[in-house]
Write a protein that binds this DNA or RNA. Structure first.
Lengths: 339, 339
DNA sequence: AACGCTAATCTAAACGTTTCGATCATGTCA
DNA sequence: TGACATGATCGAAACGTTTAGATTAGCGTT
């Protein structure tokens, strides 16, 4: 900018005024400055600007795993929304690891991101502290965090799983296996509640041996399913509360020599693009990813636009049960269908 | 930092020296400074540091679509690699659009990213100009770019498709449909060459009506497949040169009332996690996503470590044909199999 | 003709670091 | 004891912007 100013024989202040339109500058000087900018190929240094202005027009986004199709889609939507608004997005994947997450959030805050969208991991205590002293707006995504009272957009997980399990019960299933991630994050907790509630409402017992915990990965779903299917009294249906784990479930079913839906019914959380193309076509709980991403972006953009003191807004969206052919009717239901 | 210095009754230079270890500071002052840092909760401002140092420890990464599973995986690997190296990653999705890409790259360069990994889109002319005046190292990913002579990591696309088509020919297929993206990017061009070469080597004619161009999206694959399957002399196999488009292909096959592999065989580029769980299990060309991501990251990290003048390095990795059950033997082959 | 008002432009400080060179105390050696 | 190397610390400039406030010129009023 100094060079531009010299070339145009004006002060840097005038150049700045012209570029930002913060003050009127005469046509004559405007022309000289614009010419100089072109000649020199000047580009404003966003870092210097950020330092002075205290804003980077960059936001941080952390998710557990970008390869989880739910997060892939949400990240994509969020990225687009901020791109439109002229913001850059720094993406971090925490790998479901608490320390990684804390490091990454600190890294983002050091870089003075203007805001944060966080699909948190693990215990919220440190997250809370970090977020408290950094003075940037935060939007929680997918997962609430106790004690962190900020904007959030989540699913009505309890209801979604309640509906899915109730659907299985109505098909005639009585022993329904349930595979979940660690329940220290709100969606896993709420989904579990939905599972128990559905059984309870239907007057069915809750068999604790049919509830398995994993760490969100395919291998965890595989192991959990193997255990359940090897038992003498195996379930007739399995619900996976997490998408990557359902792949493990399907592989276990295959490896143990059973088939879905003939021998065992399967449903899971989170839809994916292939679900209605291949067999079996999985019955899933689809999250409104587009809406989730857009709402999260909008909440943050609204704060960034200056609406700082509005009370925290918590958006709860509805899931949708996508009924396909991976769950088959059983018992009386099967008869009434075949009749 | 000023406050820390005051609280510890030292100069800012000393604080900086201690934090960065650039000079020895006495145990006594060290202790005072560390105490002050804790008391105040001081965090170094990375923006100010960047301005002074001329480095942001941030890189830019642009891909066409993060929802394309190939890019999802590669982005994930790259992100991890840079995370380990203490770099942040700014992610941009160009949506296969040239102007978007140019805007985003300019945005990244304005923010003084230290380096760039680009899976480019469209004509390379503007990209070349942008990259030339910005003085940052660039690594091309997946797609080469004429005139841009930088580090790159790509697949041997021609060979990979040659192998896949030859496999289909060996199964007895003679009319093999080919669905590709626009051929202005190197992978699509090379893959097409592989297709033609395989037919040529096998002494088969090239039927231009069996070659269809789309714009990388599911709907394009759907339309192309519909057209091919509606013709009086339809192909016995279809190869999709792009992963999202193959979903369209499968849906078209389903909607037209055919089934795979009984009526038509299908193979495609890019593997995905579900491929060996559902039916049909798609035969695919798997790219070594882990290696691609790591190599790209390594090339860039090497430049960032100071190795600026080494000549451009171009890494060409091999694809791997994952043979599953979506392609069936035909004619003589089918007989020899059933015999 | 003196005054004030407005519009255009400029000067200089500030943002929070890093770093060069200067300063100063201390100990060592001839 | 004086000269000098060594080590620890500091002052101040610089990175490239933005912006408050000062300055100047031009013009209409009275």
């Amino acid at each position: 900018m100094l060079h531009v100013a010299e070339a145009a024989r004006v002060s840097v202040a005038t150049v700045s005024a012209l570029i930002n339109g913060t003050a009127t500058v005469s046509p004559e000087l405007s022309q000289r400055i614009e010419q100089a900018i072109r000649d020199i190929g000047y580009k404003r240094n966003a870092i210097a600007r950020s330092l002075k202005m205290g804003t980077t027009r960059t936001i941080g986004l952390t998710v557990p795993h970008i390869t989880n199709p739910f997060f892939t889609d949400v990240v994509s939507v969020i990225q687009q929304a901020f791109d439109r608004a002229g913001y850059a997005v720094m993406l971090c994947c925490t790998d479901e690891d608490l320390n990684t997450q804390d490091d990454q959030i600190r890294l983002l805050l050091d870089r003075m991101v203007d805001g944060l969208i966080v699909a948190r991991v693990g215990d919220g205590a440190i997250l809370k502290r970090i977020v408290d002293d950094a003075n940037v707006p935060v939007v929680l995504l997918d997962r609430l965090c106790e004690g962190v009272d900020t904007d959030a957009v989540v699913l009505d997980n309890q209801r979604a799983v309640f509906d899915a399990i109730t659907y299985l019960i109505n098909l005639g299933h009585r022993r329904i296996g349930y595979i979940t991630g660690t329940s220290d994050i709100s969606p896993m907790h709420d989904r579990m509640t939905g599972y128990r509630e559905a059984l309870h409402v239907a007057g069915l017992p809750i068999a604790e041996e049919l509830i398995r915990f994993g760490n969100f990965h395919e291998i965890d779903g595989y192991n959990a399913t193997m255990q359940m299917l090897s038992s003498h009294d195996r379930p007739s249906a399995i619900f996976s509360a997490n998408n990557p784990m359902v792949i493990g479930t399907m592989k276990a079913i295959r490896d143990i020599g059973l088939s879905c839906p003939e021998d065992i019914s399967v449903a899971c959380f989170d839809d994916f693009p292939w679900s209605d193309v291949f067999q079996p076509q999985l019955t899933t709980v689809a999250q409104p990813v587009q809406a989730i991403g857009e709402q999260a972006a909008n909440l943050l953009l609204d704060r960034l636009a200056g609406n700082r003191d509005a009370p925290p807004r918590k958006l709860v969206l509805k899931g949708r049960l996508m009924i396909r052919n991976s769950c088959r009717p059983l018992g009386a239901m099967a008869q009434s269908v075949s009749a």
